[in-house]
Design a protein around this nucleic acid. Structure first.
Length: 1122
RNA sequence: GCGACUGUGGCGAAAUUGGCAGACGCACUAGACUUAGGAUCUAGCGGGCAACCAUGGGGGUUCAAGUCCCUCCAGUCGCACCA
């Protein structure tokens, strides 16, 4: 081939890779693993622009590089395919969001394929596929059935909580739970009905339903999470958001606040993201204080209250306040409550009631937007009530003010106007007293340099003279001794709202019985999205799912039953009936089965290896729960159960139990075959033969049961009514909170991922995506991962070791200037002479800032008859058509790449013009990955030229291969090895732009050396392959290699080729380079100094004086100080 | 207001540990080859005639600063009454 034709070779190699499954990940594998992941894309209707693939190219380079380095690489891609845009489209047009989503994905996929990514597409996942969201729902069920034990500091099964309640009541239980918990004893608990117990447990579960103030967005018809609201409007769509109280599902992420915070330290993530998360979690150490409300009946004259003291009433009650500055307690001159605070009504005096009511009304009706926009104006009202300072019994007035947030701390603050700027502003505004409690530099709150933690304490009794830190410690100790407060850590992070009143999301697998929520059984998952006729909320405001017919749980699983435990089953010949069982206990059985699966006997292990992987033509599961029993091995489509018994089964009671169990299972339609351990271990062949013949005898059921996750409900639903299902769906972040685990074992039908896969892949080595997910996806996914860690499913506390946030590629817009009042456009250089209005013009009809006037005229109807004032090279005006030298020069500016600004560049266009390899290298060449930078199509020619130069090292103009078998010389080896070294270092530190430069330098140098030597070029191609895989494959094949370059080994650079025998020292005088001298690299430093000083040039600079000092840095520089 | 990041030619940038500032590429200029040039090749290309001056401004540490410290300015992003 004489010419480099990227379009031809790229299609060719993309097909080869696909046909040969070149990038299919090995599993199992003996190689070390490397997991490189891109953030989950939402397939939007607009398709990709050149900014999107930036990160994908970077990760693809790393993936290809790591493969060449001998790693087993997991490099998957999939789609976060639930989401609002497809649903908004559905609401407007009635088209099912699945169709929209499917179309968008097809387009995305095609665009991605064009760029030659090395994804293992066999692992593609989509969050909206039932076989994916089955597991999202499964995790939800787990979260619902766990609580957070603060003592063990992890999530534990709700059964353990039940047990604790049954033993000791709830007083001693240290759980993360709702605030409004009533205490009960073990006796009381045990007397509660199952339903009452369940109701109480809801306050402890990690997923719970509660009435909370939420961000309600009428425009979208749904609630939004805090991070989905920006500046009082929805992040998507920009609709106004209001506060509304609704019953909502929430996730107790607050239970994980401390761990989410402290584990950040070990992560190799950008400081910016870690800081944002720290801030969002918002840990503050402080003190919880109780202020008693003063009984004012003994005071006749309210004026006398100033500087008065009172004895606090005994007993409980009072007002709780959280403060981080308990050391300033002697400076408290008033308390402020949030207008929503529950005590406001109770303490407000009759005289103040009207004013307070008016203020509360005002504050409540203020929208989020107004409240956020106006934080400067001080507002508030006096309640008429007084509290008592617990340290000195001083009476202090209680105010309400909107600057106090109901949701943070206790919704009340102790105001210290001398140490807190907000309190100061409030005190100044309402003329409240101020007591200074700190003195020294920077303690004056009215000054610019005020530092709240500066100085030493004054007016503070025993704290006087201490610095802030010691005062804090001392006072915390004192309030604890006095029993008026205690040290407490507070977090800003709130539990996250988990329900969305939308259609296009995972249904929450919950049904309601007597108004209480229960999760569906795992065997009933996935709970698939129902078909509905319209995607809007119903007329009475219910979510779209309320439109679905029969949206009920058809088999409310496992109602009230008799207590059964595995041990009691073995010990007690009085055996359970199979039709009912206890839901909670049933869960325990599943847990038990899981445990057994991990601790197989030798015989079980031996038989499992013989049965697994459909070796007998059908699929076996092991330790499978069938009703209340655990079957050793079961094939579901022949309903064949195989039991392997050890010695224990010879015991007569156990035998009796076995017989009973066989009977029950037979009633359920199962056939049970038994073998002893000895039979399996000594004569496996005949055991297998017996199983084989049994299978052939048995009728096969619907194959769907054999292969799919859709195991029919194991407990018959007879006799129970239909229970309504939850109508809200999960938020967008549900699926993306765990998808990275699914890639490890994407096709698994019996688990979200197998233990083997999870153990091998562990975590993501490199995660790449935008920083906009800092407090959303990146926090929630860490939370879910930690939950799964607590349950023992994953081994790592964090799922992404290294995170890089790629910068945005900005658009480079072109502008044209229309003379006001005319349909005439003036070129950029001449526009100053006219009054003009600028317009964005489509960058695709502009090249190198020169407008294609014919295309412009056809661009829009109103431009058909447009006229132009052009400029020539000297900036002289020319009319269109007059002469040839004139052109319309457009202005330009860098802004967001967006359709509305006509500056979108589609990667498909770039690929069809220059090729995918050029696009890949150019995107990397633009600059450091993390930085934002503008796209410039014109500059791409440099990279395109570079690839043609690569081609020219292999072929001459007539298409003849230039390769020679000559041995390389030192110069060529040096060029090659320094390139290998640099490229390797660059990839390891994710500096892709510099390695593109390095390749260019390498090709320039090899071309100068006229090098066409096979050994050199062969290694060069391998190191180039991660960046420009198509051309590398093509030339690799041209060299006569049979195996693809993807299977090659990355060359090892050898230091010996890089050693220089001499070094050209810059000789500087006072730090400025004046001369250069070549010396042997190993020359004695003193000798270097002497020779440098003896050189004519330097003698000239010395002007006869002796230098003050001479610094010689070996093989770096010589500096002569005069 | 708080926090993080960034600031180097006309443009994208490089300089990894303090050691020759501007590698590599674009654009531009001149020339060659051409019917032609949006192809290719050759050369030049921070400013200044020069001494010199230049890494957002100012100051400091150092033999030596784009790099370290202080301070100010600008831009981008995030958060924003968090007690």
């Amino acid at each position: 081939m004489s010419e480099y034709k990227p379009q031809e070779i790229e299609k060719k190699w993309q097909k080869v890779w696909k046909d040969n499954q070149t990038f299919k990940t090995e599993f199992p594998s003996k190689k070390p693993k490397y997991y490189v992941l891109d953030m989950f894309p939402y397939p939007s209707g607009a398709g990709l622009h050149v900014g999107h693939p930036l990160g994908y190219i970077a990760t693809d380079i790393v993936a290809r590089y790591k493969r060449l380095k001998g790693y087993n690489v997991l490099h998957p891609m999939g789609y976060d395919s639930f989401g609002l845009p497809a649903e908004q489209y559905a609401v407007q047009t009635g088209q099912h969001p699945a169709i929209t989503t499917e179309n968008n994905i097809a387009r995305y996929h095609e665009q991605l394929d064009n760029i030659g990514f090395s994804y293992d597409w066999s692992r593609e996942v989509r969050t909206s596929n039932p076989d994916f969201y089955k597991w999202t729902q499964w995790i939800f069920v787990k979260i619902f059935n766990y609580w957070y034990n603060k003592e063990s500091d992890k999530a534990e099964p709700i059964e353990i909580l039940y047990q604790k309640f049954a033993e000791n009541g709830n007083a001693k239980v240290k759980a993360v739970c709702d605030e409004d918990i009533k205490s009960f004893t073990a006796q009381e608990w045990n007397a509660y009905s199952e339903e009452q117990k369940h109701e109480i447990s809801l306050k402890y579960r990690l997923a719970y339903l509660s009435n909370t103030f939420v961000n309600w967005c009428p425009g979208l018809g749904t609630v939004l999470a805090n991070e989905e609201v920006k500046d009082g409007v929805s992040e998507r769509g920009g609709f106004p958001v209001e506060r509304k109280e609704m019953a909502q599902w929430s996730m107790r992420i607050t239970a994980y606040a401390e761990r989410l915070l402290s584990d950040l330290d070990g992560l190799d993530w950008s400081d910016s993201i870690k800081e944002q998360q720290r801030y969002w979690i918002g840990k503050s150490k402080g003190c919880m204080l109780t202020f008693q409300i003063a009984d004012l009946s003994s005071f006749k004259n309210l004026e006398g209250l100033k500087n008065a003291t009172a004895t606090p009433p005994s007993g409980g009650g009072g007002l709780s306040v959280f403060t981080t500055r308990v050391d300033t307690i002697y400076g408290v001159t008033y308390l402020t409550l949030a207008p929503e605070h529950e005590l406001v009504d109770k303490i407000t005096t009759p005289e103040q009631k009207a004013k307070v009511d008016a203020y509360v009304h005002y504050a409540k009706n203020k929208s989020e937007l107004d409240r956020q926009a106006d934080v400067k104006t001080v507002t508030g009202e006096f309640t008429g009530a007084y509290a008592i300072n617990p340290l000195n019994n001083a009476l202090i007035p209680i105010w309400i003010g909107e600057y106090v947030l109901a949701g943070y701390g206790t919704g009340a603050v102790m105001a210290v106007p001398s140490s807190d700027t907000r309190d100061y502003a409030f005190a100044k505004h309402f003329n409240l007293p101020i007591i200074n409690v700190q003195e020294g530099e920077k303690t004056d709150i009215t000054k610019e340099d005020f530092d709240p933690k500066a100085g030493t304490m004054i007016n503070s009794d025993f704290l006087n003279g201490m610095d802030v830190k010691s005062a804090l410690e001392a006072m915390t100790k004192r309030v604890e001794e006095l029993g008026v407060g205690y040290g407490k850590v507070n977090f800003k992070i709130r539990d996250s709202i988990f329900s969305r009143q939308r259609y296009w999301g995972e249904p929450i697998p919950v049904y309601f019985k007597n108004g209480l929520p229960y999760t569906l059984d795992e065997s009933q998952l996935p709970l698939e999205l129902p078909k509905i006729d319209e995607y809007k909320p119903t007329a009475n405001g219910e979510p779209p799912l309320a439109r679905a017919k029969n949206w009920v749980a058809s088999s409310p699983p496992l109602g009230e039953g008799i207590g059964v435990g595995l041990n009691s089953q073995l010990q007690n010949a009085n055996l359970p009936s199979w039709q009912t069982t206890d839901a909670i206990k049933w869960k325990a059985i599943k847990e038990k089965a899981r445990e057994l699966r991990k601790n197989q006997t030798d015989a079980e292990q031996t038989l499992w290896y013989a049965l697994r992987g459909e070796q007998l033509g059908v699929k076996f599961r092991r330790q499978q729960v069938i009703d209340v029993f655990i079957a050793d091995f079961v094939n579901l489509n022949t309903k064949l159960i195989i039991e392997v018994d050890g010695g224990i089964h010879l015991d007569s009671d156990v035998k009796k139990y076995d017989e009973y169990r066989t009977e029950v299972l037979r009633n359920l339609g199962y056939t049970v075959v038994r073998f002893t351990n000895e039979e399996v271990e000594n004569d496996l062949d005949s055991v297998v033969e017996k199983i084989r013949s049994k299978i052939s005898e048995l009728p096969k059921l619907n194959p769907i049961f054999a292969n799919s996750q859709k195991i029919p409900p194991l407990t018959p639903p007879q006799g129970e009514g239909n229970y309504p299902l939850e109508t809200s769906t999960m938020p967008g972040w549900a699926g993306s909170s765990w998808y990275f685990l699914r890639y490890m074992d994407a096709k698994n039908e019996s688990e979200f991922a197998s233990k083997d896969a999870l153990d091998y892949w562990q975590d993501v080595d490199l995660y790449l995506g935008g920083s906009e997910h800092a407090t959303g996806h990146l926090l929630y996914s860490r939370f879910w991962h930690k939950f799964l860690y607590d349950l023992g499913y994953v081994k790592t506390k964090e799922y992404a070791k290294k995170l890089i946030n790629q910068g945005m590629i900005q658009g480079r817009s072109n502008l044209v200037y229309r003379i006001n009042g005319e349909n005439k456009f003036v070129s950029f250089g001449l526009k100053a002479k006219y009054e003009t209005t600028e317009f964005n013009v489509d960058v695709n009809i502009v090249e190198n800032d020169i407008l294609d006037i014919e295309k412009f005229k056809n661009w829009r109807e109103d431009l058909k008859d447009a006229q132009f004032i052009l400029e020539d090279k000297e900036g002289k005006a020319l009319s269109f058509g007059e002469g040839l030298g004139g052109a319309y020069i457009c202005g330009h500016q860098v802004e967001k790449m967006s359709k509305s600004l006509y500056n979108v560049v589609n990667p498909d266009d770039v690929v069809s013009k220059y090729g995918a390899d050029t696009l890949r290298m150019y995107e990397m060449f633009l600059g450091p990955l993390e930085l934002s930078k503008p796209w410039s199509t014109i500059s791409i020619s440099g990279v395109s030229r570079f690839l043609r130069n690569v081609w020219k090292m292999f072929y001459d103009e007539s298409g003849k291969l230039l390769l020679t078998d000559e041995a390389p010389n030192d110069k060529e080896l040096k060029v090659l090895h320094k390139t290998i070294k640099k490229v390797e270092e660059d990839i390891e530190r994710f500096s892709f732009n510099t390695s593109v430069s390095t390749f260019m330098v390498c090709v320039n140098e090899l071309s100068d050396l006229k090098c066409h030597k096979r050994t050199i070029l062969s290694d060069f191609l391998i190191i180039l392959a991660p960046y420009a895989p198509h051309i590398a494959e093509e030339l690799w094949e041209a060299m006569g290699n049979k195996n693809g370059i993807s299977y090659a080994t990355f060359p090892k650079y050898d230091e010996k080729y890089l050693v220089e025998s001499s070094f050209e020292y810059p000789i500087s005088i006072n730090g400025k380079v004046r001369h250069k001298m070549n010396f042997p690299a190993n020359m004695d430093l003193k000798e270097v100094e002497n020779q440098a000083l003896a050189s004519a040039e330097i003698i000239k600079w010395l002007e006869g004086k002796a230098p003050k000092k001479v610094i010689v840095v070996p093989n770096k520089i010589v500096n002569v100080v005069l």
